[in-house]
Design a binder for these strands. Structure first.
Lengths: 343, 343
DNA sequence: AGTTAGCACTCAACAGTCGAGAGTGCTAAC
DNA sequence: GTTAGCACTCTCGACTGTTGAGTGCTAACT
């Protein structure tokens, strides 16, 4: 049996109401608040059908219905109305961005704050794509910091800087270091970060002096690549989780908080398969046992054709999807704008 | 009335037991588990005295006693035995530090992880003293990133690097930038960060060309000082909070989580008045309404005579103080060692 | 004088019990 | 196809009685 138009309307009403109240929705509520032309008995019949089709669950015999994950899927795919943000909400969001920031990281912090304040859900931003393979080196800079040590700075094309302390084999003046930096930069600029070590050994082979310095640099670069996650991860508003009745059970809340504390897991949650701008994953679709009762909504933002990262929201499956999407869209745009201005 | 030796022993037993079980302690428990030579009636009399002296509270008429803040104070000051860490615990902690790290921030991350894993309390590390006034500039470096922009890197004496994107008035080659960097570094090295702007305007006055670049640098530095907090703050194990019965009330937990999300507040918690190595603040001593039921234990760590930062633990007043102190001590030492090796 | 046994008393926590309220499913009438 | 009506189910909150842990006091004991 396919759903007819009335069933769609009723299902939508149930979902809307449940998202608002977090309480199982009864037939009478729908009849009064949403479908005044139909009596509760009619609604009951329809609801019974919808349950049989797998769109509704009933927690127990006489407690109204709650939407199933399948229903949420239908909802976000077809039923939900994409409403634009209200002007005052937009203003409130904009207020967060008023301060001029000079660093990507700071802007990201603002964005996360704005998003979690606006939606009251936990927000995450990942300032690099998960596969960081296309980051290329822009500049390599050695700075003398005394005692035979040098600070190596790797500037990547995204404008981020990685720093590593090198133990040089011997004392080197700043002039020597300048020179070395320039030569290395000339040869390495534009190389993908992961290819740098190979190229470095290649260079070292044809190098007549200063092998010790080069080997130090090599080691530093390797460590940098192996160690430093090329993604910046900023989380905000995790305390919001506890406001929702779904997490009034402390154990559930703790489980989720633990996920949020684990870098890898959060990154896995933000990984979207396709190249879509928005992705909504509901319940088990998140692919993680701990988040089986959560939904994750993400947006990837770009500057030009470059994917710069992902911004996302984590909350209960009963989420205000339309509002979240609107906020995500707005914040994502503003964020991309600010990054564009920086670069 | 002063406490006699037996009262001390009984109070200690009560505190020990309460720390372990989180349940009000009755006279019979003490008589059986700790003071087998005394009957529960005797203990009752003593407990009654202790209550009158303000060391014990009773939640209601027939529920046993719980230690007051005053009792905890006495406990940490006099009663508590400073036990060294068990060998296996030490080993478990050491395991965290096995990976060689090159950056202060990464090491700090390890330390926080180790500490929260070992104690099951929330841990915080602050990698700079609160008054960052004695950070001095070591090196200023301008890096061409194209399109009339330059990346300015400020290397401070602690080895941290601050980066800011500058809009130069005009296109400048890397050679020019090298030169400018060197001159500025020569003049500014050793200057306290907050004094740099004043000195810069001074230099600008006597500068014959490239005013536009200098003003860009000046603006960048000012922004850097105003904006970047000179302290790094890393928090770990906030999910542990929810394991304690004190925070099974979701509202309390949320309140506390919100504190942990607010940089300023966490920093205020870590601020210790004196120059002590360890500081224990109990309940209201933390000076913040939200943490009236928490204790904060901090240790400041040094390399040489330099105070490098503070490492701390936040948990319920009913905290395993002796274990926390031992872990804090051990982690603090290891941390300082690793930093020393880095610098 | 300090210690202890005994006893009455208090209070939270727990388990039942009960009625109210919300909701369903079914049937029969419209 | 829709609706009114009704019996039935289940949760929730209020109330009650019971249990057990614990106290405070008193009187006896060492």
């Amino acid at each position: 049996m396919e759903l007819d138009e009335r069933k769609y309307r009723i299902l939508q009403a149930i979902i809307d109401d449940y998202i608002l109240t977090a309480a199982p929705v009864g037939s009478r509520t729908i009849s009064r608040k949403y479908e005044q032309k139909l009596s509760s008995a009619t609604i009951r019949n329809e609801m019974s059908d919808l349950e049989e089709l797998g769109y509704l669950d009933s927690p127990h015999t006489s407690a109204g219905r709650i939407p199933s994950h399948k229903a949420y899927r239908l909802y976000v795919d077809q039923l939900m109305q994409r409403v634009p943000l209200a002007p005052d909400e937009m203003q409130a969001l904009q207020a967060h961005f008023d301060r001029r920031m000079r660093q990507v990281q700071n802007v990201a912090q603002l964005a996360v704050q704005a998003l979690s304040d606006a939606t009251h859900y936990t927000s995450v931003i990942m300032t690099r794509p998960t596969q960081a393979t296309h980051t290329t080196l822009k500049q390599l800079q050695l700075v003398n910091v005394g005692a035979g040590n040098a600070l190596m700075l790797l500037v990547t094309d995204g404008g981020t800087v990685k720093q590593t302390l090198l133990r040089l084999g011997r004392e080197m003046g700043q002039d020597d270091l300048y020179h070395t930096s320039r030569v290395l930069t000339e040869r390495l600029a534009g190389t993908r970060l992961e290819d740098v070590p190979a190229k470095l050994t290649q260079i070292a082979a044809a190098w007549d002096e200063g092998q010790d310095v080069l080997s130090g640099v090599l080691e530093g670069v390797q460590q940098q690549i192996a160690q430093t996650p090329h993604t910046e991860l900023i989380i905000g508003g995790s305390a919001h989780l506890l406001s929702y009745p779904e997490y009034s059970d402390v154990d559930k809340a703790r489980e989720l908080l633990q996920v949020l504390e684990t870098r890898d897991k959060v990154m896995r949650l933000l990984e979207t398969g396709g190249e879509m701008e928005f992705s909504i994953r509901i319940g088990s679709e998140t692919g993680m046992a701990e988040t089986r009762d959560c939904s994750v909504v993400t947006a990837t933002y770009r500057v030009g054709s470059d994917t710069l990262g992902t911004i996302g929201i984590i909350g209960p499956t009963r989420m205000q999807y339309s509002k979240v999407l609107a906020a995500l869209d707005y914040v994502g745009r503003t964020f991309a704008d600010m990054i564009r201005q920086l670069e």
